[in-house]
C-alpha cells in the first residue's frame, strides 16, 4: 500500500520559532553565553584572576576591551570566565528544579487523596522557606560554593514549579482525552508520557526558563553575601558586588557585569516564551503548502 505525502501541513515548530524575533533574541543570547563559557575554558585575553595594582582602572582600550577593575584585572576576561559560573548555575538550578517540580507535582496530583493533601501542605511549608535561608543552611554545612547556589535555587524554585503545575497536571489528568486513552488500553505510564505531561509541558518550559533567569540573579545576590562562588572563582555576581562600591567614581566598570546579567536574564525568559509559543499547536501555527 502506498502512502501519499501530505500537501498541506502545519508549519513545523522550528520554523515558527525562527519567525518570532523575541524568541530568536533569547536563542542568540543563550548561544552566545554557551559560546563564551566554552571559549573561556581554552582562552581569555588575560588571566582572569591575575591582579596587577599598577594597571588598575584602565578605561576601555584595544588592550583592555572593557577596561580593568580596582585591582587591575581585565574585566572582559573576568566576565568571559564568569559566564561559566552563570551557565552552570542556570542549567544546574533548572535541572534540580525540574526534578523537584515534576516529583512534587506528580505526587501531589496523581496519588491517593490523603497523600495529595500531605504534599500540598508540604509544598506550602517549603514555599515559606526563602531561598536565602536554604542557601545559608547549606553554606554553613558545606561552605560557600556554586553547588550551594544550584541546590538552594533548584529546591526553592522546584517547589514553586510543583505548586504551579500541580493543579495543571490534576486538571489535564482528569480531562476526557486521558479517560479516552485509558479506554483505548493505555497503561498509566504511557498515559502520563503521551497525554498528561505533554499537555503540561508549556507550563514547565516557561517556569524552567524563568528559573534559569532567577538563578543568574540569585547567584549575584548569594555571591554578594558570600554564599556563592569562592573568592578565587570569577563570577558575574562577585564582580558586580566588588565594583558596586566604586559606582560613583568608575560607573562604566559596573555597567559591564550588570549588562551581561540583564541580557542573559532577559534572553532566558524570551527563549522560554518563544519555545512555548512555537511548540503548542493550539496557538495557531500557520499552515504552509509543501509539495
Amino acid at each position: 500500500m502506498t502512502t501519499t505525502v501530505p500537501i498541506v501541513r502545519q508549519r513545523g515548530w522550528a520554523r515558527t520559532f525562527i519567525r518570532n524575533p523575541a524568541g530568536v533574541f533569547g536563542l542568540v543570547t543563550t548561544v552566545a553565553l554557551v559560546s563564551c563559557a566554552l571559549l573561556s575554558i581554552v582562552w581569555t585575553p588575560y588571566d582572569p584572576v591575575h591582579t596587577d595594582v599598577l594597571s588598575k582602572w584602565h578605561p576601555p582600550s584595544s588592550a583592555h576591551l572593557l577596561g580593568t577593575d580596582n585591582i587591575g584585572r581585565d574585566i572582559f576576561s573576568v566576565l568571559l570566565a564568569g559566564s561559566r559560573v552563570t551557565l552552570q548555575v542556570a542549567v544546574g538550578s533548572a535541572l534540580v528544579a525540574a526534578v523537584v517540580g515534576v516529583v512534587f507535582a506528580a505526587l501531589g496530583s496523581l496519588t491517593a487523596r490523603w497523600f495529595r493533601e500531605i504534599i500540598a501542605v508540604l509544598i506550602d511549608i517549603l514555599i515559606a522557606f526563602p531561598t536565602l535561608l536554604i542557601a545559608m543552611m547549606l553554606a554553613s554545612a558545606l561552605g560557600g560554593s556554586i553547588m550551594v547556589v544550584i541546590v538552594a535555587v533548584g529546591i526553592s524554585f522546584g517547589v514553586n514549579v510543583g505548586r504551579v503545575s500541580r493543579p495543571e497536571i490534576r486538571r489535564v489528568s482528569r480531562s476526557e482525552f486521558v479517560t479516552a486513552g485509558i479506554a483505548a488500553g493505555l497503561g498509566p505510564v504511557r498515559n502520563l508520557t503521551r497525554h498528561t505531561l505533554p499537555n503540561v509541558a508549556p507550563v514547565f518550559i516557561v517556569q524552567l526558563s524563568w528559573c534559569m533567569a532567577v538563578a543568574v540573579l540569585a547567584e549575584t545576590g548569594l555571591s554578594y553575601l558570600g554564599y556563592g562562588a569562592p573568592v578565587s572563582t570569577p563570577s558575574w555576581g562577585r564582580v558586580l558586588a566588588e565594583l558596586q562600591s566604586y559606582i560613583g567614581i568608575h560607573p562604566l566598570s559596573v555597567v559591564w557585569p550588570g549588562l551581561a546579567i540583564t541580557i542573559t536574564v532577559l534572553g532566558f525568559n524570551l527563549l522560554g516564551d518563544g519555545l512555548r509559543d512555537a511548540t503548542d499547536p493550539r496557538l495557531g501555527r500557520p499552515e504552509v503548502i509543501t509539495a
Binding site: E176, G181, A184, G185
Partner: peptide
C-alpha cells in the same frame, strides 16, 4: 483491564472536542 480496553471493548465518548488530545 488495560488488555481488554480497546481490544475487546471499544468506547466512543460524548464530546469529541474534549475526548481527543489537543496536541497530538
Amino acid at each position: 483491564l488495560a488488555r481488554l480496553r480497546g481490544s475487546r471493548i471499544g468506547m466512543v465518548f460524548q464530546e469529541p472536542r474534549t475526548s481527543l488530545n489537543p496536541i497530538r
